[in-house]
């Protein structure tokens, strides 16, 4: 439900970057999302056309890269993949772990066209 808010924030960010780089058109936006960010990739994709309409990013492709959940065990030190609701160490099973990846909600890169049109 809050994906529209997130998408609007994303577009504001992209618009600012486009202004800064004097871009006339944004071609592609790459976002990296982890399952523990609280944002759903497909809902973000659905909200995107609403958020980008009428902006410099109107025709841009939104690419969402999924980031896996990884935890580092505080007991045995192993770094393993985990599920969103079972952040246990994949080696020793201890629950005392630290999340090292999977909560990202990051604007990774923006491709844009600058200069004048030919």
């Amino acid at each position: 439900m809050h994906e529209l808010s997130v998408c609007q924030a994303l577009i504001r960010e992209v618009e600012a970057l486009a202004r800064e780089h004097e871009a006339r058109l944004v071609e592609q936006i790459v976002v990296r999302l982890g399952p523990l960010s609280g944002v759903e990739a497909h809902l973000l994709q659905q909200a995107y056309p609403l958020a980008c309409a009428g902006t410099v990013a109107e025709s841009a492709e939104l690419v969402v890269e999924a980031v896996p959940i990884r935890v580092e065990c505080k007991s045995c030190g192993a770094e393993t993949e985990a599920k969103a609701n079972r952040l246990l160490c994949g080696e020793c099973g201890d629950w005392r772990t630290r999340l090292v990846g999977g909560d990202e909600m990051v604007l990774a890169s923006v491709s844009m066209m600058t200069g004048t049109e030919h």
């Binding site: 994303l10 982890g34 844009m112």
Partner: peptide
């Protein structure tokens, strides 16, 4: 972070791919 480190290696923050086209690495929270 571990997850995004590869994005900032080689090529630097801003990569010009071809004439008039820029690919910008941002790494900023949404």
């Amino acid at each position: 972070t571990h997850g995004n480190a590869h994005l900032v290696q080689a090529g630097g923050k801003l990569e010009k791919t071809e004439q008039g086209r820029e690919s910008l690495t941002v790494l900023k929270n949404l």
